[in-house]
Amino acid sequence: MTSRANAILLAVAVLGLAATPFFAEKFYVQFFAKLLIMGIFAMSLDLLLGYTGLVSFGHAAFYGASAYTLAILTPQYQAANFWTSFPIAIAVSATLALVIGFFVVRTHGIYFIMVTLAFAQMLFFLFHDTKIAGGNDGIYIDVRPVAKIGDWQPFNLDNFVHVFYLVLVFFVIVYVLLRVILASPFGRVLVGIKANEARMRSLGFPTFRYKLVAFVIAGAIAGVAGYLSSIQFGVVNPEMMGWHLSGAVMMMVILGGMGTLTGPIIGAAVWMLLELGLQGLPKVGSVDLGKHWQLWMGSFIVLASLLLPNGLLGLGASLLRRIGKQRGKPDA
């Protein structure tokens, strides 16, 4: 599939989604919002995984960092200001990515995977084991941020439809932003680094710097997703930084097809539908299939990583090729 075909497909999907609040129930509107948030999160990881070749297993750290920032900025029983808390939260995620990136980006391959996971878990344990922001129970954001400019309030975050459209707008912004960045001189350098970092160095590119900036951009965008998630659900907990989320988002990227930007969005959708479906599995006799949904999810991950190296987009493309070939064959 070409990237143009992807973009057209995506535009149609976005328009379709934009219409959902007019006919869908609250549950589905919120589900789609969550799906789009995960889409933003997965796209941010794709910048590292699919375009720079940095396999980060700690990406949830930046997702959780901005969510915690909002929780800490929100005074008890009062609302935070959206226009200040949002940029601050993103700045915190970006700064954290800069600090962690400064240490991890100098490692390669398997070390990078382990070190990103270790630093993310460090943050997880920091919030899980201490009393900061509610410890392992997490913390509720009792009152959602207010987006007032003077007396005018362009949107109300207590209204789930408004939240949905806000998420949709951010989703489109992030997608376009990443496409622009990937086509820029900077983006081309990243793709070159993924293909052959040593060659990029000998061509005169200080690759450390570029990888670090990519890490920061991805962290900041993950922060956008984390912030949106915390206003949608009104709760922040250590799990938002945990490796289950880091693993899940990695799986979304791989499942859809990394290095495509659209693939991770599809991966996010498939993942969340799967999660919903598996959790809703019925009781068979004395065995509650839905309660142990992680067992099926785990088995699915094992199978998918064995059978789908190029993701669903790759699978689709090779199926299309095969059909094309068969059509092209003369009837013998």
Partner: peptide, 11 residues
Amino acid sequence: VLLTYGLILVV
């Protein structure tokens, strides 16, 4: 990493 992450959930 992915496959063994899946194993974690299964185990």
